[in-house]
């Protein structure tokens, strides 16, 4: 487990664990065993396939997991012909296939089990994931990701700071499902606006707009960046992402409409308030979206106390 924890601390890899989903890493269509089978049958299957654990299914529903340890227990008790039901572990910790890989890593560290069955939205078994799967996937993904990051760094062209009236320009990248760093960009914006003495109402409105757009990128986009241009006139907030785009902008702007999934809702997001809030708090607001990416531009007029 230490290997994973160290990998997670290694900077750029952090982004990968939010971009990759459990479904990208798991073994699909894993070997399973019926709840009506015997422990001997389970042992035979494990030996033949060279595996150390089997999810147990009742019809197609996951009801437990049986491991080498359980087989040994059955042998020890002289009950190797007992049904799987008697020896399997029923308190199975599962993952969902659309969770970010970071969840899988947290689980591995938290529960210390070797394998985690993966279920889909309808509660059916869709795969299985082990610590080894995670390490392999991270190694494979690292190469292409570093290349991408390098290309991105080259393309970051910042606007001309010396242009008339511009006080400061700031830019922050956002990463899909990186809730760890959610709000970092907005907090920086807030501090910068404070530094220049903007009125509290302007700071508050800019913070709301920025935070909602930042969170939208983290929840819904494939990543992007938040760009702020602070001038005498006010604050321009540009939220640009790399896709997948908003299908129906009018619908997305309707209060209460959301495409967020359950685990995002469980941490207090995805209530369909984000875009409407952002628009309400802006003086100018526009959205441009295609499958290649979304650009939201918001402007909040300044009421500078003094400059």
């Amino acid at each position: 487990m230490d290997v994973i924890q160290q990998a997670v601390n290694a900077g750029p890899i952090l982004e990968l664990i939010y971009q990759l989903k459990v479904s990208d890493v798991m073994t699909r269509n894993p070997e399973t065993i019926s709840i009506h089978a015997t422990m001997r049958e389970a042992q035979k299957k494990m030996r033949e396939r060279g595996i150390t654990g089997l999810p147990v299914l009742d019809d197609s529903r996951l009801v437990g997991i049986v491991s080498i340890g359980d087989i040994i227990d059955a042998f020890d008790a002289g009950e190797i012909d007992a049904p799987v039901k008697t020896y399997m572990t029923t308190s199975v910790v599962t993952l969902e296939d659309d969770m970010p890989l970071s969840y899988a890593i947290t689980y591995v560290n938290k529960y210390q089990y070797r394998r985690y069955p993966v279920i889909n939205k309808t509660g059916m078994l869709s795969g299985i994931i082990t610590a080894t799967d995670i390490i392999k996937a991270l190694l494979v993904a690292m190469n292409s990701e570093f290349t991408k990051l390098e290309a991105l760094a080259k393309n970051d062209n910042k606007p001309n700071v010396n242009e008339n009236g511009i006080l400061e320009s700031l830019q922050f990248p956002t990463v899909k499902y990186d809730f760890e760093h959610a709000g970092t960009a907005s907090t920086e914006l807030k501090n910068t606006l404070k530094k220049y003495g903007f009125a509290n109402t302007v700071i508050r409105r800019a913070s709301i707009v920025s935070y909602e757009l930042e969170l939208n990128q983290i929840i819904h986009s494939d990543g992007g960046y938040m760009q702020y241009t602070i001038s005498n006139k006010g604050v321009e907030i540009l939220a640009r992402d790399r896709g997948p785009g908003i299908q129906d902008i009018q619908l997305a702007l309707r209060e209460g409409f959301s495409t967020a999934n359950d685990w995002i809702r469980s941490i207090g997001f995805g209530a369909g308030l984000g875009l409407p809030n952002a628009r309400k708090s802006s003086d100018e607001f526009s959205i441009d979206s295609s499958t290649r990416g979304t650009l939201v531009r918001a402007f909040i007029f300044a009421q500078l106390r003094e400059l």
Partner: peptide, 14 residues
């Protein structure tokens, strides 16, 4: 009941 870092971010901003 939202016991995670994002609540701190929101509290900070507000």
């Amino acid at each position: 009941i939202q016991a995670h870092k994002n609540s701190i971010a929101v509290a900070t901003l507000i």
